[in-house]
Amino acid sequence: MNGPIVSVRNLHKWYSGVHALKGVSVDFARNEAVGLIGDNGAGKSTLINILSGVQKQDEGSIFVEGKEAAISSPRDSMRLGIETIYQYNSMVPTMSIARNLFIGREPIKYSLFGFGVLDLRKMREESVQAIADVDLHLRSPDALVGELSGGQRQGVAIARAMHFKSKVMILDEPTNHLSVKETNKVIGFVRSLKEQNVTGIFISHNMHHVFESCDRVVAMARGQIVLDKRVSETSIDEVQSVL
């Protein structure tokens, strides 16, 4: 049980002529907060999209808890305990918080071939609990997500990941367009993942955010990993110089 929770080996990805990932291999340990840094086009989004099942690698393999995993859809990824929180698209703004929390994983009262009647009471109760668990204060689970602030939305997305007991949480630029206060809150979330036995992969442009909240920093450039060090053994200057 001490091996890495997720490891990727020799991952390649081409986009019609562009070699976006050139043999990336990296391990993510249990309960570790890893900052993934890189310029636009460095390949970090591609790596994340492959782990979350949005895209499929052309070559290479992914291991989850030591077993080789075939991830070909977001559902596969979620089933393996990998939850991804995107910058924009993790919530449907026209739906309520309670409904958003359970999209695709609705609690069902009676079902036939996977279709069934929603357990609306359970959805409300559990969403209230899930939101309280991440220290977010929202009065009603029936409020539309579109009415929440950016930080609150990220909070709800994190609550959702927590509720479904994910083992790995990928946060793709979660602090973009957030106020300073809300950014601090999200960074607090990333820090607290450790206590909840969740591995966090935190993608950001902002070095300070990464150094503040992560144990390890992985830097990517031109489709390769160019630096992989403990935060305590490196500095912002060193990371910047390799990018």
Partner: peptide, 13 residues
């Protein structure tokens, strides 16, 4: 979800 915000619905499987 599909009509509300397609990328999110896709990302949620």
């Amino acid at each position: 979800a599909t009509g509300g915000f397609l990328p999110a619905a896709d990302a949620l499987g």
